[in-house]
Amino acid sequence: MTHYDWGSGAIVKPEEPMKKKNVQIIPAQTDLKRRAVNFVKGFDINLSPEQLEELEKVVQRSSETFVRDIGKDLMDCRRMIIQALGDKTKRQDAVATSSDLAYSVKALGGTFQYPLMTQIAKSMENFVADRTTANEKQLLVIQLHIDSLYVILAGRVTGFGSTVEQATVAALTKLAERYEQPRE
């Protein structure tokens, strides 16, 4: 009720009662837990370092496939870029293929101990993002990224590389920023 506050001398209006949101809380589904969690069979919820190492080896099984398949994809994509340089009608496909390739390498490089590839692919992905085509200079920027990725893969440069490799990543990123416009 609105009233006069003798202390402050002000007219005080009561606060609007807060509207409660209609929220339905549904208890957690425990079926999976009931079926799979036990004390007899399976893998410990908290894996030991040795068990984690074994599991990591399983992930690394696909490492050779990654090197082989991505190597081939890089060569195919490079070929498309070179064709697109001389034929404007092929640019849209070349850019789309570059975008897919950049995403794949960014996603998987680090998993297979090639974080440097992930860094370069990230720069390439940012560069081709939201593009439907590219001009000649922009295609050359994409090609430089692809060449760098190929060199790392062919040389099996695992880890983040030395200062030279890091300088290369920085240079590629700067180059991509310089030729970012126009974005069509």
Binding site: A36, V37, N38, F39, G42, D44
Partner: peptide, 8 residues
């Protein structure tokens, strides 16, 4: 330790 039986 509690375990998880992934076969289930």
């Amino acid at each position: 330790n509690a375990k998880i039986d992934f076969s289930k």
